[in-house]
């Protein structure tokens, strides 16, 4: 079976790809093909793609000489075989095509839009017996009265009083938070932690409840000493 030889012009010169097969057959076939090209290949710079074939320095040197006779310069040998690669290096041949100069990547444009996650807004008081259940976050503008239930996969924000049952991070997300202007729920759950409201002392203040070391803690919101 004849060894396939493909000749193709590339930016760097002439790319010759030699298919699988015996070198004893492929070598002469290659030379024959180039000779057939006659004047066309004269003075060309050759890039030889040898695939996995193992060739020693002697064979490569012989090929270089034969090509030189045709006025073709063997410039680069591409090969997956270490033997061939070393032989080519020993002969002072290139073993890889020069990389195209690295293009400095353009700076991505600055996008001023913030991403967010999905939430629903409830713009009225949630009364006893009503419930809100949403896989994302829940925002209530109004109160959550005793007997009402709000549960969210994410966080719960109430711009008002919380007296009912609120549950954030229903899928076990302990990172969820619940915040309200006046947080005194019947029961509060974040992830798997449950808490009830302590007796209030003094005036209600905005608070944010989160889980710390498995315990629900409510922190007063102070504009000047916020922690991350």
């Amino acid at each position: 079976m004849a060894v396939s030889i493909a000749i193709k012009g590339i930016k760097e010169g002439l790319l010759v790809t030699v298919g699988d097969g015996d070198w004893a057959e492929a070598g002469p076939t290659l030379l024959e093909k180039l000779r057939e090209g006659g004047e066309f290949f004269r003075g060309a710079r050759l890039v030889l793609q040898l695939g996995g074939r193992a060739l020693g320095a002697a064979e490569l040197g012989k090929l270089r000489t034969s090509l030189g006779d045709l006025n073709i310069q063997l410039w680069t040998v591409l090969s997956e075989s270490a033997l061939t690669g070393n032989a080519a290096k020993a002969l002072g041949l290139e073993t890889s095509l020069p990389k195209p100069p690295a293009v400095t990547p353009e700076l991505p444009p600055i996008d001023p839009l913030e991403d967010g996650s999905e939430a629903i807004l409830v713009q009225h008081t949630v009364r006893s017996g009503r419930s809100i259940n949403f896989p994302g976050h829940v925002v209530v503008i109004g109160d959550v009265n005793a007997g009402a239930e709000v549960s969210a996969g994410g966080n719960i924000v109430v711009w008002g009083r919380v007296r009912g049952t609120v549950q954030a991070g229903i899928n076990g997300n302990a990172e969820a938070v619940i915040c309200a202007l006046d947080l005194a729920p019947m029961q509060l759950r974040i992830g798997n932690a449950i808490a009830t409201s302590p007796k209030r002392r003094g005036k209600p203040e905005p608070e944010l409840a989160r889980v710390k070391d498995g315990q629900v803690v409510a922190e007063r919101w102070k504009p000047n000493e916020r922690e991350k």
Binding site: R127, G129, G147, A148
Partner: peptide, 13 residues
């Protein structure tokens, strides 16, 4: 008051 709250919610809905 709790029940009234419930009823108000139903009336509103």
């Amino acid at each position: 008051v709790r029940d009234a709250d419930r009823i108000i919610g139903l009336v509103e809905s």
